[in-house]
């Protein structure tokens, strides 16, 4: 049960302000989710570079990680830390080996995202504190998704915070409560897809990843989710170049969208959108039930 915000920029002139706009939207959704907050930001693509965002309860664990990982992978690694998270930049060709190397170098460290453009920051605490801790307001990018969480049936932890990323450059946030996620989790496990937390939303993220691994487009995967996921949901999903929204057929969980020539924005409530430029003239609407909305760059 939660608050969601999302912003997909069409106008490159707004890209330097993505973090600032998204952080502001996130903070207005504090009441809907005071337990934890998280953001996925899609930054500019850097040719041949892969990014891995890692989280550690003890930031001292970041010290020397770049050199140790560079040695393990046999190529250069750059590290930039912000609070409990750090972004590792490395040669995209070596990115596949990085998770295993990280697990052996820093067993307690968690990967929150990997890919070419995505960075995910999430923590327990109030959205304003979380956004400030990572300096989100200063971040640039093309699109981003934020989430404030009121935990329903799983623990209030960093791992349980949204967004969930189960494949490179993919992420999902969820407002609602799924009612068949235990069965789905077992089904995914048999198909070799691991779900790390007890959170129902991560199962949804893993489900979409699995469908796409099987060859579906994100749009098709979302259509299939309407058949296979039971319960209440509003999902907002991100990919390297795309941004999607889908609500369950009952569509009780709130959703407001706004579109102008400059952006597409999503909020659980209209309040989240009020500071966006040109909102007064934007097309504002509620996404229809059981309908997939998708934008690509």
């Amino acid at each position: 049960m939660c608050g969601i915000v999302g912003l997909f920029l069409k106008d490159p002139a707004l890209e330097p302000a993505l973090g600032e706009m998204l952080a502001g939207m996130l903070v207005t959704m504090t009441d809907r989710g005071p337990d934890s907050a998280g953001l996925a930001l899609y930054g500019p693509q850097e040719n041949g570079v892969a990014k891995i965002t890692v989280q550690s309860d003890d930031p001292a664990a970041f010290e020397g990680l770049d050199t140790a990982l560079a040695e393990a992978l046999g190529g250069p690694v750059a590290l930039s830390a912000a609070g409990s998270h750090a972004v590792l930049r490395l040669d995209a060709a070596r990115a596949g080996e990085a998770p295993a190397a990280l697990a052996s170098l820093r067993p307690g460290m968690r990967i929150t995202s990997r890919g070419e453009t995505i960075e995910i920051y999430k923590e327990v605490g109030l959205p304003a504190d979380v956004a400030a801790r990572f300096g989100v307001a200063g971040m640039a990018g093309t699109h981003g998704i934020g989430h404030t969480r009121m935990a329903t049936e799983s623990a209030v932890t960093t791992r349980g915070a949204h967004p969930f990323s189960t494949a490179p450059d993919q992420c999902l946030v969820h407002n609602g409560s799924l009612s068949n996620h235990h069965n789905l989790r077992r089904q995914l496990a048999r198909a070799g897809v691991a779900v790390e937390t007890e959170n129902d939303s991560e199962v949804a993220a893993a489900y979409l990843t699995w469908r796409m691994q099987e060859g579906a487009s994100l749009g098709d995967a979302l259509e299939q989710a309407l058949d296979d996921l039971d319960g209440f949901f509003t999902f907002v999903v991100g990919t390297r170049d795309g941004f999607g929204v889908v609500r369950d057929p009952i569509a009780c969980k709130p959703a407001v969208m706004a579109e102008t020539d400059a952006y597409v924005a999503f909020g659980s409530e209209y309040r989240a959108l009020v500071d966006l430029p040109g909102i007064e003239a934007a097309r504002v609407w509620e996404p229809e039930p059981a309908t997939v909305y998708f934008w690509t760059r």
Binding site: M1, C2, G3, D31, R32, M150, T152, C252, K253, P254
Partner: peptide, 14 residues
Amino acid sequence: CRHPDWTGPDDLEI
């Protein structure tokens, strides 16, 4: 079985 104008604890707060 559900209230007509809210669903879930985030709406309930309002």
